[in-house]
Structure formats: structure tokens, C-alpha cells
């Protein structure tokens, strides 16, 4: 009976296919091996007290902090907390979205200036207004923002990246930097 023979072969082949798929399936998790996944992705971390800052000043902090100087010193964990000249608090990634140098805050001009190719970011919202970073299209021309909380004692806490990816820029949404600051 040639008919039943061929259907038996087809059934065997189907079983083999299913078996191969079942064996391969668990290995798809291998992909995750290549990514370093941060477990507690947004820890609440104390940065400073408002009394340590005056209008037109800044300080650097690393986030998320691990205690290992090699990891904490990584540029991709470098953030800058700014008290703007009119007293607003802002926290941006320090990694320039052009070529990943670390801009510094220049209070006289109210701007963050990158030492490498001279990209200039506004203190107000971290958007590039000059230099090569300003040439990049919108979501990639702005420094990622950190959401911060200030409690009644004046302690400032970093509570996670709200907008964008370090070194890349922001996501496709317009957001006022003021909404990232909570007073608790």
C-alpha cells in the first residue's frame, strides 16, 4: 500500500521537525547571554542635598552606583546634576550624543559644552543648539534625562532614566524637563 507508506513517512518527518524545534527552542534564550541585564533597573539613589548647590553650579554622579570604581567610572554611568542660573534642578547624561565625550557645565553661558567637537547643549532642556550634535535629527540631539526627587530635608534622589538612552539621545516624545522633578 504505497499511500499509507507515504503518509507514515510524512508523519515521521513531522515528528522529526517538531523534535528539532523542541530541542532548539530553549536555546533561543542564549540571545539574552549577550546583553548585560540590569536587574534592579531604577534604584533610588541619593545624590546630594540642595544646600550643596547654588544657582549656576553642577556636580557629577554615577548612576546606577555599584561601589566598584571600575564600573562606576564608566562614562556611560556618568550623570550631571545642574542647578540652573534661575534655580531649577536638572539631571542629564554626561555622554555627548555625537561621539560620547563628556560635556561640562559652563554656568556663565548656561550651557553644557563638549570638549571634543564643541557641541553645545542648553541647561534648560539638554537639547543641542550648536556643534555636530545639533546636526543630528531631533530625538538624537538631546541628552537623556534623569528623573529626580527632592524630599523635605532637601535631599536629592535620582530615581531612574525617564527619557532616552545614554549616548543615543531621547525617544520620540516631547516632554518638559520640569515633569521629571518631583518634590516629596
Amino acid at each position: 500500500m504505497p499511500d499509507s507508506g507515504s503518509s507514515r513517512r510524512r508523519a515521521l518527518k513531522a515528528m522529526l521537525t517538531v523534535a528539532v524545534l523542541a530541542v532548539i527552542a530553549p536555546f533561543t534564550n542564549l540571545v539574552r547571554f549577550f546583553y548585560r541585564e540590569d536587574t534592579g533597573s531604577a534604584p533610588r539613589q541619593r545624590i546630594a542635598n540642595t544646600s550643596e548647590l547654588k544657582p549656576g553650579s553642577s556636580l557629577f554622579f554615577s548612576y546606577p552606583r555599584t561601589g566598584d570604581p571600575k564600573i562606576d567610572g564608566d562614562p556611560f554611568r556618568q550623570w550631571i546634576l545642574i542647578m540652573t542660573r534661575d534655580g531649577k534642578l536638572r539631571a542629564y547624561s554626561r555622554v555627548c550624543v555625537h561621539l560620547w565625550c563628556l560635556p561640562i557645565y559652563v554656568p556663565e553661558r548656561g550651557e553644557l559644552i563638549c570638549p571634543c567637537h564643541g557641541s553645545i547643549y542648553k541647561e534648560e532642556d539638554g537639547v543641542a543648539i550648536a556643534g555636530p550634535a545639533a546636526f543630528q535629527p531631533y530625538p538624537t540631539n538631546a541628552l537623556p534625562m534623569m528623573s529626580i526627587e527632592v524630599d523635605e530635608k532637601g535631599d536629592i534622589y535620582a530615581t531612574g532614566v525617564v527619557d532616552g538612552r545614554v549616548g543615543l539621545g531621547r525617544e520620540w516624545k516631547l516632554r518638559s524637563p520640569d515633569t521629571n522633578l518631583k518634590r516629596v
Binding site: Y35, I71, D74, P75, F76, L99, W100, G167, L168
Partner: peptide, 29 residues
């Protein structure tokens, strides 16, 4: 490194998921 990683990141569709494979958690990776 910065140019190469920037180019990888900027690749359409695949870039944002391929670049972290090279980058890991930062320069230390």
C-alpha cells in the same frame, strides 16, 4: 570605538539590539 558603536546604533531596525551585544554594560564590558 565611539564612531563604530555610533554607526552600529544608527543602523535601522537591527542597530539598537545589535549594539548592546558589542557594548555590554559599558566600556568595562
Amino acid at each position: 570605538i565611539n564612531i563604530g558603536m555610533g554607526l552600529t546604533f544608527a543602523a535601522p531596525v537591527l542597530g539598537p539590539s545589535v549594539a548592546p551585544i558589542l557594548m555590554g554594560g559599558g566600556y568595562f564590558d
